[in-house]
Simulated scan of single mutants.
Amino acid sequence: MAQIEIISKEDLLQFKNDLIQEIKAIIQPARAETTQWLRSRDVRKMLKISPGTLQTLRINGTLRFTKVGSIMFYKYEDIVRLLDSK
């Protein structure tokens, strides 16, 4: 015969808390290493600027970018840094 174990609400609550902590530990490092990339339209919305102004920021080196095919991407951290400097 199989032995019957009784699980209390407290046992389930502790299991839930332990599981959440383990999931957070897995997700947090991955999130910290991920760089968020934004497209031109998102950057223009954030900075409230026109396409021409964004082009000027690229040309004069104020805002770094990476071009993949015909799409330009900008690091979120660079946008925040630009906002903080103004």
Score class of each variant (00 low, 15 high):
Gly52Gln: 05
Tyr74Ser: 03
Arg39Val: 11
Ile71Lys: 05
Tyr74Asp: 05
Leu47Val: 00
Tyr76Cys: 08
Ile79Asp: 05
Pro29Leu: 12
Tyr76Met: 09
Phe73Gly: 06
Arg58Val: 06
Gly61Trp: 04
Thr35Asp: 12
Asp42Glu: 13
Glu33Trp: 12
Leu38Ser: 10
Gly61His: 06
Ser50Phe: 01
Thr53Lys: 10
Leu54Asp: 02
Lys48Cys: 00
Thr56His: 05
Glu33His: 15
Phe73Ala: 04
Thr53Asn: 09
Ile26Trp: 01
Arg81Asn: 11
Val68Asn: 04
Ile49Thr: 04
Phe65Thr: 00
Met72Phe: 04
Gly69His: 08
Trp37Leu: 15
Gln55His: 06
Arg44Asp: 00
Arg81Thr: 14
Arg81Met: 10
Met46Ile: 14
Thr66Glu: 11
Tyr74Gln: 03
Arg58Phe: 02
Trp37Phe: 14
Ile49Asn: 05
Thr53Met: 07
Asp42Ser: 09
Thr66Met: 11
Lys75Asn: 03
Leu47Ala: 01
Arg39Gly: 07
Leu57Phe: 15
Ile79Ala: 07
Val43Lys: 01
Phe65His: 10
Leu57Cys: 07
Glu77Ala: 15
Tyr76Lys: 15
Leu47Tyr: 00
Glu33Asp: 13
Ile71Tyr: 01
Arg64Gly: 06
Leu63Tyr: 05
Ile26Tyr: 03
Lys48Glu: 00
Ser40Phe: 01
Ser50Arg: 05
Glu77Lys: 13
Gly52Leu: 02
Gln55Lys: 12
Leu54Gln: 11
Asn60Met: 02
Ala32Tyr: 13
Gln36Ala: 14
Leu54His: 05
Gln28Met: 10
Arg64Asp: 02
Ile71Glu: 01
Thr53Glu: 06
Gln55Asp: 08
Ala32Ile: 15
Gln55Ser: 10
Leu47Ile: 00
Arg44Thr: 01
Tyr74Asn: 04
Asn60Lys: 10
Met72Gly: 02
Glu77Tyr: 03
Ile59Met: 09
Phe65Pro: 00
Arg64Leu: 01
Met72Ser: 12
Ala32Gly: 08
Gln36Trp: 15
Glu33Tyr: 12
Thr66His: 13
Asp78Arg: 07
Glu33Pro: 11
Asp78Thr: 11
Thr62Pro: 02
Tyr74Lys: 04
Ser50Glu: 02
Lys67Ile: 08
Leu38Cys: 08
Tyr74Gly: 05
Thr62Asp: 03
Glu33Met: 14
Thr34His: 15
Ile27Met: 08
Gly69Gln: 11
Val80Gln: 14
Gly61Ile: 04
Arg41Asp: 09
Thr66Pro: 02
Gln55Ala: 07
Gly52Met: 04
Val43Asn: 03
Val68Ile: 10
Arg58Ile: 05
Ile59Trp: 04
Thr53Phe: 03
Thr35Tyr: 12
Val68Lys: 12
Asn60Gly: 03
Val80His: 12
Gly69Val: 11
Ile59Gly: 01
Thr35Glu: 13
Ser40Met: 02
Glu77Ile: 07
Gln28Glu: 14
Arg31Trp: 11
Asn60Gln: 12
Ile27Ser: 08
Leu38His: 10
Ile71Phe: 01
Arg41Gly: 06
Lys67Thr: 11
Arg44Leu: 07
Ile59Cys: 07
Met72Tyr: 03
Thr56Ser: 06
